[in-house]
Design a protein around this nucleic acid. Sequence first.
DNA 1: GAGCACTGC
Length: 678
Amino acid sequence: MNHHGHKQPPAKKFKPGSPPVKPKMQAAIHCGPKKMTVEEQRRSLPIYLARSQIIAQLRKLDSVVIIGETGSGKTTQIPQYLYEASIGRQSIIAVTQPRRVAAISLATRVSEERRTELSKLVGYTVRFEDVTSEETKIKFLTDGMLLREAIGDPLLRKYSVVILDEAHERTIHTDVLFGVVKSAQKKRKEQEKQPLKIIIMSATMDVDLFSEYFNGAPVLYLEGRQHPIQIFYTKESQSDYLQAALVTVFQVHQEVPASHDILVFLTGQEEIEAMTKTCRDISKHLPDDCPKMVVMPLYASLPHSQQLRVFQNAPKGQRKVILSTNIAETSITIPGIKYVVDTGMVKAKKYNPESGLEVLAVQKVSKAQAWQRTGRAGREDSGICYRLYKEEEFEKFEEMTVPEIQRCNLASVMLQLLVLRVPNVHTFDFMSKPSPDSIQAAIDQLHLLGAVERKGDQIVLTPLGKKMAAFPLEPKFSKTILLSPKFHCTEEILTIVSLLSVDSVLHNPASKRDEVQAARKKFISSEGDHITLLNIYRAFKNLGKNKDWCRENFINGRNMTMVLEVRSQLRDICIKLSMPMESSRTDTRNIRQCLAHGLFMHAAELQPDGTYTTVDTHQPIAIHPSSILFHCKPACVVYNELLHTSKCYMRDLCVVDADWLFEAAPDYFRRKLRTTKK
DNA sequence: GAGCACTGC
């Protein structure tokens, strides 16, 4: 272990070809061919050599930043070292993860290493699942879950240590937690309560930022077990990255042994499906002495069963080629990748606080992201990475991906901060501050929803706002639920909001378009997507939540099951708030009225020329092709979100009366009218 | 006339 002051630049630590990438559980699971006992495995980790030094440091320090290369074992071992050394043993050690699966698999792994039953000494808490008990001392949880817990107890008194893992990913939840744990630590010290130890764990990015933010916390560096990776850049700049990727894949394919699998990073579903087809076509016509190629697409909306195929080995003598979005950067770790092809491009969301518009666009990756991709080639053995851009181009990439908190609508975050009773949301101690415009836009939005009001120069939550914060939803959806008793349709609104807050339940395989349309016909409502989804849910419920029915109707059964879980969670919250649970049965008018009242800020009107403009800023927008109403021209609609891709599209529409909108927010629309008249 | 990166409460 090297122990540096935080001012030293960490980048020099890395040998060329040994990029800073982060560890994944799979590394420990697929550890080696020889069977080792759990104890032998723990001792064989690089981190074990530094165990006593680490313990001494952790005992001494209130806050520490730990930088660990891949395979260092920091996430599984450090919580155990703390426990074994009786540091923070009087209460619970929390370890956060950005993803559910990681929290679950890490807890499972560590409980095996402790030889205890999961939920006893070691447990986990994620949404819908709490596998902990009175005995639990080491608890893995999602960052979002710890943030939820903080709402009930901003000082996090349950915990003696909070470890924020994968901090370099800078998820919006981790970024808010930085501020929450920092303030909890300070307050607990002031009130002479049990101290809170903070451990930030990260790959090598942002070290100085982390250390400075936590009052100059020392940085510990851990050696990893990353295999060397050779990197090749292109000689010339590539104007067509798809063509470049195709050429590279087949060049590699014809030159290296078939057992070496290739992972290609592309930007989206359509591109990946097209490239899959091209690769399959070309590979059919290769010379006989060339190995066969198994091409697999990989992206998030691919059905789970098809995603799992990337873990199967290709038949002997054949090469696996995986064409993936950035899902293979962090969420899915594929063993045995020898070659990575990095196009240097990614599809990502940007947010413009002025227009309130989210733009989804193909853009260049950051250096950190390029390193992350490269690292996917060296997990089990040395690897090779082809970067489809020149080295000079790479040097011009942004160092870091912009943290999520600077890229999205902050309405939920601001509501959360207010319910956490932070003194002033405008001056909250963010590690990377969002723009003042972005914060103000979120406050304005909460104001329109009736969640906040101004008292003097302070912004405070209204009783309605406090209720809204109880729901794990975007504020506009919590508001819609809270409005629903007025329209006697809480049961239906719960269903609709649940359907909208999980991945789409509609499965649309491109090859079976006509069949899909025929099957879907019976659910379609001319009143829009919300009511259509409600019809689908009702049919699903009435037919006993049948799996065959899902398949026949091109409904994603897994996502439908998620809907049931979300719905029951939201319903429990309604009951705790003593809301009357009524159903509007066959009447859809009041459901649409309720949606109009909740989503009035997202309304659009048909213009004489047949196009649409938003009611608030008169921006031209179009109906997204995925909408039931794509071919229709209703006079007035509300929508869930605007998304700018090739055009500005509204997604998920509901037909409403213009009058309902004015009833919902007379002041707001009067103001809008005035501005439009001049 | 034509389309959707990835998480999470």
